[in-house]
Design a protein around this nucleic acid. Structure first.
Lengths: 192, 192
DNA sequence: GTCTATAAAGCGATAGAC
DNA sequence: GTCTATCGCTTTATAGAC
């Protein structure tokens, strides 16, 4: 799984892969070295703060990716439906139909939450807020929009957990479809 | 967090706590010793297979707990509504309103899935099956019952992830309430 | 059944050559 | 910028006294 590394950012996909699959505690420098193709020297050159700094960089990178590919389309779409479609397509690809875990969600479940708690909470708060806002722009009342947005983000996390556990990517896609339908129904009801 | 240990089973709550909070890789024998109040000698006396055997024992114990407290009430209740109520109450207490992670779900997300995959999948399959069966007994059609049961189990997992990440146990209880309402609605519609 | 001591391996991190 | 060698510590697991 060696990669071509020219700068610090090039290590992030490999780092994310190891952290996601093995967790913070399980991500040894040996695994990280194998996944990035870099020795300890290079890793500490890019990340003087060691493993901790690598993890922070990965969390920031994930936040940036979602900001660009999920949150921005949701926030900017004139028709909320277009934003929702863009979100769901990006999500299905990013999580590989549920076969790739959500590193942020997974780290929130265990002791890793302690050092990275604020970043983890910010990720989910932003996601829910931007989705609720899109629903409100589509005419859904504030309370209902907030609850529905929370249900959908929560539903996606649950679908990842279940589809990983059962090794069933069709389950993930079907659940995304039902969540999308719930959003559409709420928008249609609001437009009446 | 030392406990009174008389036999192997007495170690399981402490073991589960450490494995749930720190993951398999992060659960060191030092942490396990502190949580159980036992030295290495005693731990290897109870679990000759070491950490691996401890993890298997914890998974089995969790499965047994759910069988007794969640699956059996669901399967045996004459009125599916009573079974569902019992399930939701047990779930809220067991997961401490979402502040305690689901060890089984969390282990399915990462590399820990490899050795314990069958046990993890069996846990979720059984949960979904027993809930779908209760819905069918309440008159809900087979396909719809299966989908709804999947959504509810998935929804609970998502609620744990989100409420842990946001440190918000009210979110967990509210989500459980909405999931319960969906089940009731389906049962009411089937009874018409 | 529980303990301490210890072995062998792996860990994260650092130093210094190139 | 990348490497190897190494430090000090922790890891899992074992052995043997009690």
């Amino acid at each position: 799984m060696a990669r071509l590394i020219a700068e610090r950012a090039d290590t992030l996909p490999g780092l994310a892969e190891v952290f996601r699959e093995h967790g913070y505690a399980g991500a040894s420098l040996s695994l990280i070295g194998a996944a990035t193709g870099l020795g300890r020297g290079s890793l500490y050159h890019f990340f003087p703060g060691g493993k901790r700094e690598m993890a922070e960089a990965v969390l920031t990178d994930i936040g940036d990716w979602f900001e660009e590919r999920v949150f921005a389309p949701l926030a900017e779409a004139e028709d909320p439906r277009a934003g929702i479609d863009a979100m769901m397509m990006a999500i299905d690809r990013y999580f590989r139909s549920g076969q790739q875990a959500c590193l942020v969600g997974a780290w929130g479940l265990g002791a890793t939450r302690a050092p990275f708690g604020p970043a983890i909470a910010a990720y989910f708060r932003r996601w829910i807020a931007v989705l609720a806002d899109a629903l409100e722009r589509g005419g859904v009342a504030g309370d209902r929009a907030a609850t529905l947005a929370q249900d959908v983000v929560s539903g996606i996390q649950g679908a990842i957990t279940l589809s990983r556990a059962l090794n069933d990517s069709a389950l993930f896609r079907a659940t995304l479809g039902r969540l999308t339908a719930r959003l559409y129904t709420a928008l249609a009801a609001a437009a009446e």
